[in-house]
């Protein structure tokens, strides 16, 4: 059976200031380390796409390959998913990107994210609107922000296909369809580049630290594009799953948002328990960063 190849991406630029959290690089190194350990333990290959600074930090981890592809990224650092896009651009179909705070702990979890004949795999659907009166502020704010500053094919696509439950969580994210992948990545870059050349957008993003354009350009965009093409999708969690119970059942973990940084001690303890050699290696390496 062909091995599944997982991808990590580590663009160091957003790791310096996101959410006003300090020492993110070190915290991320521990998270990535445990994520790599779990990936290898279930028999997957795992590669890294990063920048030169990231190679010096994350290069200590036992990746099967490291690609320095992110040095030329020239977007505002709030486009934190850009590294993921470059990684996909430089990877074959079937490679699955997992966030550094995602742990694939069992072969069952690996199976749940591995593409067979589907066009796209993602973690789960995110529910945006609870009813017609109360919309999700998280998505609505960012969607309104983007709409005020750019009008292109991607934003028109989103306008045409958005619906009540209209985004995909991309904690895991892979393509099995080349045309869909190209259209998605093309839309991402066109929109992100236009926004980053728009000073009023940049001013607004700089003024509000929680602004998150990629929640639209990655998650909502992916949903709308899949809907447009009636794509065959696969997700770790299904619509009626209790994701918290099912995650424990299948051995899948995702530590969401900045919450991850309050669990670093647990992550370190788990890595020390499961892989003391890697734990020591990372501990020593962190002293040099």
């Amino acid at each position: 059976m062909k091995k599944t190849t997982l991808i990590h991406s580590a663009w160091t630029e957003p790791m310096h200031s996101r959410w006003h959290v300090s020492n993110q690089i070190q915290g991320n190194l521990w998270l990535f380390a445990l994520s790599v350990h779990y990936a290898k333990s279930v028999g997957a290959d795992i590669i890294l796409h990063t920048d030169s600074a990231g190679e010096k930090i994350f290069g200590v981890l036992p990746y099967d390959n490291i690609h320095i592809t992110l040095d030329k990224l020239d977007l505002h650092c709030r486009f934190w998913a850009a590294g993921k896009m470059v990684a996909h651009e430089n990877s074959p179909l079937g490679y699955i990107h997992i966030d550094g705070d995602v742990f694939i702990k069992t072969t069952q979890a690996l199976e749940a994210i591995t593409l067979k004949n589907e066009d796209v795999v993602f973690q789960s659907r995110e529910y945006i609107c609870f009813d017609s009166k109360y919309e999700s502020t998280f998505y609505k704010y960012n969607l309104d922000l983007l709409r005020r500053h750019v009008d292109n094919d991607t934003m028109r696509l989103i306008k045409q296909y958005e619906s009540r439950d209209n985004a995909y969580n991309t904690g895991v994210f892979g393509f099995g369809n080349e045309n869909l992948k190209r259209e998605f990545l093309g839309g991402y870059w066109d929109t992100a580049n236009k926004l980053c050349r728009n000073q009023s957008f940049i001013d607004e993003v700089n003024a509000y630290q929680d602004t998150c354009p990629d929640i639209i350009l990655e998650q909502m965009h992916l949903y709308c594009l899949c809907r447009k093409h009636n794509a065959k999708t696969k997700s770790v969690f299904q619509e009626h799953d209790n994701i918290f119970e099912k995650a424990k059942e299948i051995g899948y973990t995702h530590i969401i948002g900045k919450e991850k940084y309050s669990h670093i001690d647990e992550v370190k303890a788990r890595l020390r328990e499961l892989n003391p050699q890697l734990y020591s290696k990372v501990s020593d390496h962190i002293k040099t960063i």
Binding site: F103, F244, A247, K248, T253, I256, R270
Partner: peptide, 10 residues
């Protein structure tokens, strides 16, 4: 006070 954003276990 605090919250958690974990799906699954560490």
């Amino acid at each position: 006070y605090g919250t958690t954003g974990i799906i699954g276990t560490i």
